[in-house]
Design a protein around this nucleic acid. Structure first.
Lengths: 210, 210
DNA sequence: TTGTGTGAAACCGTTCACAGCG
DNA sequence: CGCTGTGAACGGTTTCACACAA
């Protein structure tokens, strides 16, 4: 398997979700054209993604086998076993993210939550207990957690990120409006809601002015 | 002003936030190299963004004037007056997004909230009342709202989006894990948390395996 | 010297267009 | 035929590299 780009992985994840819907509908075959429509993409892109990143097996005239494709994408995305994930910050945002995790994401296992609020420590969300921030190094190591979700205020994000990376985390999903200084080799996905909102406002105005 | 790309707008928004921090620190001048470091970008990119999108006035040897740059970027991003924004769905996620809005975003005025839960209707968040979903067409038109944030379940997202677009919304920020069918000219920013998480998990594994 | 502005080159991802196969 | 797989062309961004200004 060669290097797969950022955007391709995002699309594969989307394809998998769409395929999951098709499976529920009992559909067994799907054309690139059909998937493309559902994904707001082009048929050529779908074919290329499936051929290059997965080991495509689409057949002319019938398209792709839904169940098989679903499995193949899963093999690429999830690896042998799923990733263990920690959530740092169990505020409104953190709890909202839990709802997405609850959606039976294959390959993503929430193992631990952390919060600085003593009132939250000891409670449980989605069957996993909330630890105090001080427990981060120990728990991350004990549970072999490589992925962490930062849903905490900007002021503490960098410090917490350092602790996580020290403990072995190699993937961070950062909701705090800060550009984290990550060490080399660590992947950071910034979800910057403030920026996205300003972007939306800008293009909404552009759209209205035409 | 020529066409400014998606990504450039996102960076400008980031620059503005960074400049705002610098202003608070009392810094009056900034070099492209410095902004680039803060933004995790390259100096050349910063210069190009500022020169092409804004009407740069950086001077050799001193760099850019922080206050002036802050204003100039604001003029590009915000237009004459700010955009009026509606929030649909006042669950955990919706309330979390409100926190970002509360961060005194210039150019973004929350004017209305909507929720299908009768218990929430009538309450207020950030000084603006929560209306029932049925009031969407009326309120959106009355308040001249062009931007809407969808923080509702996937099942109802498309239907609500249609109502919003019918009422004149031209920019949607969509947190629901669905690919919205938007009419031409309407800007949609998808924040797909499930996809972002799977992406982070994938690259965390890649990083760990090297 | 230091740091900006910008044409030109390099890069990456997407789309085109067509060969091949059922 | 209809639909996939893929080399080749394309277009948009990013980076390079250097002229210029203080």
């Amino acid at each position: 398997m060669a290097e797969i780009s950022d955007k391709t992985i995002a699309r594969l994840s989307l394809y998998r979700r769409l395929l999951s819907d098709l499976l529920e509908d009992g559909q067994t075959q799907v054309r690139s054209h059909e998937l493309a429509t559902l994904a707001n993409g082009s048929p050529a892109q779908v074919r290329r993604d499936l051929a290059e990143a997965v080991g495509c097996q689409g057949r002319p005239r019938q398209g792709y086998d839904v169940a098989g494709l679903f499995e193949s994408i899963g093999a690429v995305l999830d690896g042998p076993s799923g990733e263990n994930v920690a959530l740092v910050g169990v505020g409104n945002l953190g709890r909202a993210v839990l709802a997405y995790l609850a959606g039976r994401r294959p390959g993503v296992n929430l193992k631990a939550a952390f919060d600085s609020d003593p009132a939250k420590v000891g409670q449980s969300w989605m069957g996993c207990p909330c630890h105090p921030d001080a427990a981060i190094p120990r728990v991350i190591r004990e549970q072999s957690i490589r992925v962490a979700i930062l849903a905490i205020p900007a002021a503490s994000a960098q410090a917490v990120a350092e602790q996580l990376m020290d403990a072995g985390v190699t993937g961070l999903m950062n909701f705090a409006p800060v550009r984290l200084r990550a060490r080399p080799g660590v992947f950071v996905e910034n979800i910057d809601i403030a920026i996205s909102l300003e972007k939306t406002a800008y293009f909404a105005r552009q759209a209205a002015e035409s």
